[in-house]
Structures are given as C-alpha cells and as structure tokens.
Amino acid sequence: MINVIQIGIGALGKQVLQYLADREGINVVGLVDLNPEMVGKSIGDIADTKNSGVTVQKSLADAINNAPEKPEVAVLTTVSSIEKLVGQVEGVAKAGLHVVSTCEELTFPWEQHPEAAQKIDDICKMNSVTCLGTGVNPGFLMDYLPSAFTSVCQRVDSVTVERVQDASVRRIPFQQKIGAALTHDEFQAKKEDGSLRHVGLPESVDLIAHAMGWNLDENRETLEPVIAKEKITNGYKPIEKGNPAGVEQVGSGFVNGDEKIKLVFRAAVGEEKSYDRITIKGLPNITTEIDGGLNGDVATCAITVNAVRSVTGSTPGLKTMLDVPVPAYFSKV
C-alpha cells in the first residue's frame, strides 16, 4: 500500500482524487487546498468513496500532522508553471515525500527552464526523493509514446505526432483554455499574453530530441485559431460561424535546418474526427493511429495515479518519463 497526500483539489484534482481513492494499493492519507471553501471537507464529500477521517487541510504540515499513516508520495495537481511549482516541490521534498506533478512545464524542463529544473533536481537529491512531471500530453502521447515506438527502429529520420480533438466532450476549463467561443480580438489578446495555449509542446519536442540524441538548432512553436465553418452549439456556449472554435499549435524541432520533429495539436469544438496519430520515418517506417483519440481528462488522471508507483522505484532527483520505471496500471502493491 502506498500512502499518498494530494495537493490541489480543483477540477482536475477532484478527478485525480477519485482515481486515487478507487485504486487498490493506494491509500489517500491527506488532502491540501488553499481554497477556504474546501478546507475541512472530508474525502467522502469530494469523491465517491467512504469517509476515512481524512479532511482537506490548508497546509502540507497540517495534512502530515493529521494523516492516519505516514505519507510517502505527494500528488501535485496545482499549476502549469514550473516557476510557481519550485516552492511547492521544496516543501514536499523537505517533508521526505516523492512527487508526482501534473505541471506541464515539468515534463522535460531542462532546455526551456534550466534554472528551475536545476533547483528542483538539487532539492530532491538533497532530500533523497524523486520528482516526476507527467500527464497524457505532455508526458505520454506526443513525446514518451513516440519515443518508445522508435525502440524497434534501426534508423529514425523524423517523428510526427498529430493530436486532433473534438473539444465539445472536454471539461469547460479546457474549452476556455483553447479559445473556443472567443471573438477574434479576444483570441488574439489571449494569444499575445500567453494565457491561450496548450502548455508543454516545446517540452515534448525537447523530450523526443533528448531520446533520439538530436541536438536541435531550433525549437519552434506556432499558434493559430481554428475557425468555425458554421454555427456550433454543442460546446459550453454557442460559437458563431467565422469565430474561433479552438486552437491549432505546431511544435517543430530542427536539426541542421531539417524538420526532424513535428507535433500538431489541434483542439476545437465541433472537430469532425478525433484521433491520435504517430508517424515515424526511418527503418522501418511506422504509422499508428488511435481512432477517437485518448480522452485527455481520463488519461491524465490515470497516468498520474499509475506514476505513484514509478516514483517510489526510482532514484533521487528530477526525472522525466524516460527515466522512471514504466508507469503501467497496477491493482495492488
């Protein structure tokens, strides 16, 4: 049994908590959230599980002091920014807990955020704990999985991943994050201030490049709106014809001027077909497609839960998905 404290009980955090509570082999011994409306609620108030006496605390120290058993792992479902995460990891590491985080920028931060990555790595090594950033994307579908597929290749010339999603079935915060139902001016303003984007595409490019041993000349990212061809009514609010229904981002990695990595992330309300496709050019050529695509909410929560076992079996420091034991599903420990 692995004893877990979860920090951050927002929209994603609640689903992660449900998955943690459902899993044999995991025991949720503490909950932390800064929202005053959450503090004091029992686990049974938040998830469909029996009340165990575990309630939401306002600090990690309070959660540890009130835990019925000594925690081993902290699951952080808090922020997307690694800069904001450093202090959280420091507190958890000093308490002697391994870390699994859904922070997108943490999945492979060594190129994009080297100072923060080094701080986290140093903190974790000083306290003999492991820290891992994971999720479905980044963390699996557009980086770890294609890297794993190249295991059967004698030569790899290029890697292309396409993730196309009908966002109408995703959570409202996700639809809002991709700019669905904004005007063109609103979309452009959010694009410019960085609040409208899928976080983690450059990190996914870097992870693949690292796995391949490619030194990139450039890691380039573009972002454009997906325009509604007709009025759309199946999202969280109506989208008029001609307005943004979502976003298309492309991340590209270049070696000696050649595009070796291309990651296409397209998410929009009303997208005709959802799919995830990986294309590897080399020896042999490989193309694989997941029809319907992986549900991002389900997959992110599941891999976060499965990674709890992986961090307990790794070595101290900041790790990527390439470094830890495969976070396969488990029913018992």
Rank of each mutant, 00 (worst) to 15 (best):
N127S: 06
N3Y: 11
V79D: 00
Y19H: 13
E162T: 09
G30E: 01
G8A: 08
C153E: 07
N3W: 05
L60V: 11
I178D: 00
E240P: 10
S204R: 00
F187V: 12
G253L: 06
G53T: 02
G235S: 12
F265V: 13
R170Y: 10
L294V: 14
V226P: 02
A116S: 12
E83F: 15
G200E: 00
I46L: 05
E115D: 06
V226C: 02
S204W: 07
K273S: 13
I43D: 05
T49E: 11
N27Q: 11
V29I: 12
D143S: 05
D206H: 09
N219L: 07
L60C: 03
H210D: 07
K14G: 04
T160F: 01
M321P: 01
E90Q: 07
V89P: 00
P173R: 08
A67E: 02
A116D: 04
V169L: 08
P284W: 15
Q154W: 12
K177M: 11
V16L: 08
K41H: 15
N219R: 10
I120G: 02
Q118G: 10
K177L: 14
V32P: 00
V16A: 02
K260W: 01
T287M: 13
T300N: 00
P325N: 13
V28I: 01
Q154V: 13
K260T: 09
K70G: 06
K231I: 13
A148I: 15
E90M: 01
L12S: 15
V161C: 05
S274T: 07
Y19I: 11
Q57Y: 01
G13P: 00
I9N: 05
V28L: 02
V75F: 07
V305R: 04
S331E: 13
A268K: 02
D291L: 15
K70V: 08
G270A: 13
D122Q: 10
A181R: 10
G53D: 15
V305Y: 00
E104R: 08
Q118N: 15
A211I: 01
A67P: 02
L196C: 04
V255E: 10
L223H: 13
I5G: 00
V264C: 09
P36C: 11
A63W: 00
T279A: 14
N243V: 08
I43E: 02
D166G: 04
G270D: 14
V54T: 02
G292L: 08
I46R: 04
N65C: 10
G25V: 04
G44M: 10
E186V: 07
K237D: 03
K119P: 01
G292S: 13
T304L: 08
C124P: 03
V99W: 04
E72W: 03
H184P: 06
T55G: 08
H113G: 12
